[in-house]
Amino acid sequence: MCRIAAYTGPEIPLENIIVRPAHSLLAQSQHANEAKLTVNGDGFGISWYGADKAPGLYRDVLPAWADENLTNLCRMVHSRLFIAHIRASTVGETSRANCHPFKFGKWSFCHNGQIPHFKAIRRRMLAALPDQLFEAMQGTTDSEMIFFTLLANGLEADPAAAMRATLAQIGPAGDNGPIKITCVFSDGETLFAFRHATTGNAPSLYASGVLDNGGRSLASEPLCGTAARWSAIPTDTMCAMTVAGVKTLDGLVAA
């Protein structure tokens, strides 16, 4: 499974979340503690927000630990809100287009999990997309399809309702295994988080308290390595994180 780290708060260098913590996202790329695979080496990516509404995006197919550009970028780029992702692929080949985060307009999105029956529903879900979103898709992953389906289902107006509609389109899991969705996404102002599994545990995601600089973070595994200092994002509930804290939106998203 993939690993995610995100931040919102006062502007900081990206390395303060991605590189420098004791159990940073970079450390998790080789030593994940709460995933099926300890190594996540099928690419990485970062989306970050600045003065423009549209996020910057950097993605590559190299393992995160093997790209010196990543540590230099994280040292030099400062941002008030960003999302980073390291990939362990389940659907879609290892290519830059399939690396997370994905972006469209002001939105950026990343995902950890899988839709095991994706091949059976892919054509139907593609056909349901408006032309503008269909033409914007670049990769072949279930993750990107989730993102663009959310956009088609009204993500801008109501993230919780968009997720309900998207889960309905994905449908039941069938015989190929459980659907697992843990995702983090943003419009440049708020970090949204959601966890879901049809059976078993959804992939992990935690929210920090107030960090030393006054910001907050979401991460697949606590960046300090101590879970007691972090709170698990509840399953089947859309959560929104700002500097002020974490709140749920519109109650339960899925039963």
Rank of each mutant, 00 (worst) to 15 (best):
T140W: 05
C183A: 08
A165F: 08
G113A: 05
L133P: 10
D131P: 13
G105H: 09
T149Y: 00
A161W: 01
E144V: 01
C183I: 04
P159F: 00
I170Y: 04
P178I: 05
L151Y: 02
I179M: 14
K180I: 09
D131N: 10
A136Q: 08
A161T: 12
C183P: 10
V184S: 10
N176C: 05
I146W: 04
M125D: 01
L155V: 04
Q132V: 15
N153D: 09
F118D: 04
K106G: 05
S143I: 02
E135M: 10
A168S: 10
F148Q: 03
T149C: 11
A165Q: 09
Q132G: 02
F109A: 08
I115F: 00
G105T: 15
P116G: 05
R124I: 01
T182C: 10
C183W: 00
G174F: 11
L133K: 01
A160G: 12
S108I: 11
R123N: 10
V184F: 04
P116T: 14
S143A: 08
T182M: 09
Q169K: 06
L167E: 00
V184Q: 02
W107N: 14
G154E: 11
D131E: 14
S108P: 09
Q169P: 01
A173L: 11
T166V: 07
Q169V: 10
M137I: 14
Q132Y: 04
G105Q: 10
L126Q: 06
F109S: 12
T140Q: 15
W107A: 12
K119P: 02
I181A: 03
M125R: 09
L129N: 01
M163G: 05
T182K: 12
P116M: 15
G177Y: 13
A152W: 02
N153G: 07
L151T: 03
N153I: 07
Q114A: 15
K119A: 14
G139K: 04
G105L: 14
E135A: 15
D175Y: 08
K180T: 12
N112D: 14
A152S: 13
R123G: 08
Q132H: 12
K180V: 06
A173H: 09
T141H: 11
P116A: 11
A128S: 13
T141Y: 15
E135S: 13
L151V: 05
F148S: 00
A165D: 07
F118A: 11
A128R: 02
I146S: 01
A161Q: 13
F104P: 14
I121L: 01
M145K: 11
L167N: 05
K106A: 14
A157M: 03
F185K: 08
F148D: 00
E135D: 13
T140P: 14
Q169W: 07
A120D: 02
K180P: 06
P159D: 09
Q138P: 08
M163W: 00
T182R: 03
A120E: 13
I170M: 06
Q132E: 15
